[in-house]
C-alpha cells in the first residue's frame, strides 16, 4: 500500500545488526573451520587444510562422548519435565483454594538466571555446606557430585527439571483450560474409562501445545551451558561435559581456533537439522491446514 522502500528501510537496522552479529559470524566460523589456525602457536597464520579439522572431529572420542551425554541429558530432562508437568497441570484443573498463589510460586524458577540456578544447586549439593548430602547421610547415602559421575549427571538433570518443569506445566494448563467440555462428557456417557479418555481424547486435543512445548524444551536443553558450568564445570571427568560446556572448555584454553570452529559448525548443524525436522514434520503441516 505504501512504498516498499520504506518497509525495507524500517527493517534494515534489524537485518544489519543480525547480519553483523548472527549471519556473518556463522559464515566466518565456517570459513575458519577449513583452516589450521592457532594464533599463539609458532606459526600464527591461517593455513587452508581442506577437511582436516572435520576428519579429526569424527574420530574425536571426547567430542563424541560429549554428544552422547548431551543426548542422554536432554532425553531424561525433557521426558521427566513433560510427565511431571502434565500431572501437575491435570491436578490444577480441579477447583481448590489458592490456585493463583500456587501458580505464581511455580513460575518463579523461570525468570531466574541459569547461572543463579547453577549457584543455588551448587550451594545445595556441595558436600561441606550443602543440605542435600547432609540429609542423605542419614539414610546412609554418600552424595558427592565432585566424585561420582552418575550423581553429578543426576543432579544436573534434577536441576534442569526444577528450572524448567514450570514452563511445561504452564503451557499445558493453558492448553487444558481451553479444551471444550463436550467430548469428555460424551465419552463418560459412553462409558469410557480414564485411560481411554486420556489416549483418545485428551492427548490428541492437547497434541499441538504438547509438541510446541517439547520443541522449545528440546532446543533449550541442547544449549544448556551456564548452570552446568557453574554446578559441575563439566566434571567429574567428562560426565556432565555437554556440548556447550565442551566448546567453552575446549576452544578457549587450547586456542586451536580452526578445530574449535569445526566443532561449532557441527553442533550448529545438528541443532538446525533437529529443529528443522521437528518444525517441518510437526508444526508446519498444522499451520497449513488452518
Amino acid at each position: 500500500m505504501q512504498s516498499k522502500k520504506l518497509g525495507w528501510l524500517l527493517l534494515s537496522p534489524t537485518l544489519f545488526i543480525l547480519g553483523l552479529f548472527g549471519i556473518f559470524p556463522f559464515i566466518y566460523v565456517l570459513w575458519v573451520s577449513f583452516h589450521e589456525w592457532n594464533p599463539f602457536a609458532a606459526n600464527p597464520e591461517k593455513l587452508f587444510n581442506w577437511a582436516a579439522n572435520y576428519r579429526k572431529l569424527v574420530f574425536d572420542a571426547q567430542f563424541l562422548a560429549s554428544l552422547g551425554v548431551t543426548l542422554a541429558f536432554v532425553f531424561f530432562a525433557v521426558v521427566s519435565e513433560v510427565v511431571i508437568g502434565y500431572i501437575l497441570a491435570q491436578a490444577f484443573m480441579k477447583d481448590f483454594p489458592g490456585k493463583a498463589f500456587f501458580r505464581t510460586i511455580h513460575t518463579l524458577p523461570l525468570i531466574m538466571a541459569p547461572i543463579i540456578v547453577g549457584s543455588i544447586w551448587k550451594l545445595m549439593t556441595t558436600p561441606s555446606i550443602g543440605i542435600i548430602p547432609h540429609l542423605l547421610k542419614n539414610f546412609g547415602i554418600d552424595l558427592n557430585i565432585g566424585q561420582s559421575a552418575i550423581a553429578a549427571f543426576c543432579i544436573t538433570v534434577i536441576m534442569d527439571i526444577w528450572h524448567w518443569t514450570p514452563l511445561v506445566t504452564l503451557s499445558l494448563i493453558a492448553a487444558l483450560v481451553s479444551l471444550p467440555a463436550d467430548p469428555f462428557e460424551q465419552a463418560q456417557i459412553d462409558g469410557a474409562n480414564k485411560r481411554q479418555i486420556f489416549w483418545h481424547i485428551t492427548l490428541p486435543m492437547i497434541r499441538p501445545a504438547l509438541i510446541a512445548t517439547v520443541f522449545i524444551r528440546l532446543m533449550d536443553a541442547m544449549r544448556t551451558v551456564d548452570e552446568v558450568l557453574m554446578l559441575t564445570g563439566g566434571g567429574p571427568g567428562s560426565a556432565t561435559r555437554y556440548v556447550g560446556v565442551h566448546i567453552y572448555k575446549e576452544v578457549f584454553p587450547k586456542t586451536n581456533y580452526g578445530y574449535g570452529s569445526a566443532i561449532s559448525v557441527i553442533v550448529l548443524y545438528l541443532t538446525i537439522v533437529i529443529c528443522w525436522l521437528l518444525y517441518t514434520s510437526l508444526i508446519a503441516p498444522r499451520n497449513k491446514r488452518g
Partner: peptide, 25 residues
C-alpha cells in the same frame, strides 16, 4: 512434504554434510 526451491537446496546441503561426515569416519 511440499517444498520450494530453497527448502530443497537446504535438504541437499544437509545430506551433503551428513554423507561427508559419515564418509570421513
Amino acid at each position: 512434504i511440499e517444498t520450494n526451491w530453497f527448502d530443497r537446496l537446504f535438504i541437499s546441503v544437509v545430506i551433503w554434510v551428513a554423507l561427508s561426515l559419515f564418509w570421513l569416519r
